[in-house]
Amino acid sequence: MTQEWILVLGAGSDMARAAARRFARAGYNIQQASRNTEELDIEARHLQLKYGVQTQTLPFDALEFDSHAAFYAELEPKPIGILLAFGALGEQARDQKDVSWIRKIIDTNYTGAASILEVIAADFERRKRGFIVGTSSVAGDRGRQSNYIYGSAKAGLSTYLAGLRHRLHGSGVNVLTVKPGFVATKMTTGLDLPDKLTAGPQEAGERIYRAVQKEKHLVYIRPIWRWIMLIIIHMPEFIFKRTKL
């Protein structure tokens, strides 16, 4: 059993929860942070009882950029790894008509992530250890009519994570970019997602955990997504723009 801590930002999502449980199973203590901490308190009891690890529950708001430095400064003990799992999916039809929504989507998915990760990266760089897991999206790999505001914010995050990986390479800190593809969660219940392309949260947690152990740079939760995105990225624009994707 390790005495190390993992900080999970946006710990309320099903995928974050599953990943945190996987790390707890391996003996890591868990710091859960999110805007709504009520549910996190329930999850904390589960983590303590089931895995016998220690937990902390912390309020964190991705959009309160000014609070990020203090949030991390007050964090004790400092974690060995970060799972950044917050994000905002938005609704394309609504968001494209309203710049305040566009801003909120970008700020949650990109600016909020960059803001807190800069604080953490500085610390990890100085300590010369640690790992960072950022949850991006396949939606960021190519703009599509159905979700390009969310997609472009995630594209920004993917590029950001790639750059951070480059910078931290010499410090022994790995940055893992997760592009989940379809994951069956509370929010997707009722959508008819194709079985072969859809992972359960538990499977997602396992993939993320293993990718961290192996110090991977990029992981799609279902490997088939690597091939799907390869095709989508390379489709000529004059064909792509006629699709309904």
Partner: peptide, 22 residues
Amino acid sequence: VPMRSRDRLLAFDPDSGLLTCE
């Protein structure tokens, strides 16, 4: 109402065997 995601173990008393869960 899908209930499977309410899947947390909450407390266990090893003296009496009483388990509380979702």
